[in-house]
Design a protein around this nucleic acid. Structure first.
Lengths: 234, 234
DNA sequence: GTCAAGTAAATTGTCGACAATCGTCAAAAT
DNA sequence: ATTTTGACGATTGTCGACAATTTACTTGAC
């Protein structure tokens, strides 16, 4: 390895292109609700607003499309995605399929590094699982745990697909605006997953995982139903 | 709408954007091997070659990236993806996860339309499963059958993800250049899947499906190993 | 009043040009 | 001889402008 001996710990310095920056801005704006679902995402407006050209905005929007945050209609442009009850149900059903398979695979590739990373993330989840932290922080800590599960599975496909649906999950939850009255409750269901993984018991790990995501699905679906009822009392 | 009343069967006249056209061109060029794996995909060259600007080429390349046909390195551009033995193994392992789940779900939404579509596609598979047709035709007929399974599952996520990995599957097979000596053999393993679905037996359907994809994986992996040995005899 | 056609404004689709960045290779220093 | 530095060529990154398309509005006929 060619490395200057006297070099201090210089990190790669990000160097993320303008597209990534714009994509991140838009993501945040959509997830935090500044851009309402169904709203048109005008290239010109966003470009003017951010002080950049339309080209990087367009590319960023295409990136967001593959994350399921916006939809694209030819010759009409990009729109912030509408979330339906079925879409949320489908999303969580799909997550169960992916992440259960990832966990099954993870058991075979289990090692101390993964163990350490998951333990640390679990601690982080519990740390932010109080009303002192906002929901976005809690959700991101939660999803990061799941991301580590996919990342450690050894099959990159799981991570790729998870990243695509993670943002969508975050979006769905933020649309609801309020996930649980007791933030600590759902957070606690992570622990059995890690314990089962440590013990190497596949059946137990899968069960714990299924319960955890299922519980999350139940909460999200419930809250979304309440939200819809309040919106269209008819 | 300005349309002549006596107008005969005019098809929608493509109306798919230039981007889609370019993407299709590139797809074909990559899948048929005109662009070797690892080759740089110069925007300027492609644009000049097709007589269009760089913008649509760039967008098309981004589309291909999400299909796994090309990779993208910031400030360096797009490259035709290299396929490794592990990548192929990972791909098929992932397909098994997705399509098994899709089949399980399909049983619950089973109806005559889906039955008819699958039967027709099965007939098509058998029709082209001879040496009279080229491999690309055979592979596409095969994948279309699988696509129908995902499409009919009722959860759009399965279809979205399948479409992403279908092109990659096609690519992997075409790289190998020769899948099987007896085209009819693998084709025949589709039938038990359809039969099991008709009978509504989930266990049987999953078994048949797992056998079918597993068999395909075995063949592809084997052929790829042979190809690699021939390439680097060391 | 309703509906259709026509027109104007706004938005996306595409383009060509310039700026920023990367890879290469030669020249200079050690 | 090896390594570093600098400049050059090629490619990507970004931009502003124009063409094509869609949308909204107005006008007119029935």
């Amino acid at each position: 390895m060619n490395e200057t001996p006297s070099s201090p710990g210089f990190q790669p310095l990000d160097r993320e292109g303008l597209v990534q920056t714009v994509a991140k801005m838009l993501s945040k704006a959509i997830v935090t609700g500044q851009l309402a679902p169904g709203a048109r995402l005008s290239e010109s407006v966003v470009a003017r607003e951010l002080g950049v050209s339309r080209a990087p905005v367009r590319e960023a929007a295409r990136l967001l499309e593959s994350s399921g945050l916006v939809t694209y209609e030819p010759n009409r442009g990009f729109f912030v995605r509408q979330v339906s009850a079925k879409a949320i149900a489908d999303l969580y059903e799909f997550r169960i399929v992916i992440e259960l398979a990832a966990v099954k695979r993870l058991i075979r590739t289990w090692n101390d590094d993964i163990h350490a990373a998951l333990s640390a993330q679990l601690a982080e989840i519990n740390r932010v699982a109080t009303d002192d932290f906002d929901m976005l922080t809690q959700v991101e800590a939660d999803l990061q745990f799941h991301r580590l599960l996919c990342s450690g599975s050894g099959n990159p496909k799981f991570l790729t697909v998870f990243d695509q649906i993670a943002t969508e999950t975050e979006f769905s939850i933020m649309v609801i605006g309020r996930l649980y009255d007791d933030p600590d409750r759902l957070a606690k269901t992570h622990e059995p997953v890690l314990e089962a993984l440590c013990s190497g018991d596949e059946t137990q790990a899968v069960d714990a995982m299924q319960y955890h995501i299922g519980e999350a699905q139940r909460l999200v679906t419930e809250q979304f139903r309440i939200l819809e009822e309040g919106k269209t009392p008819q």
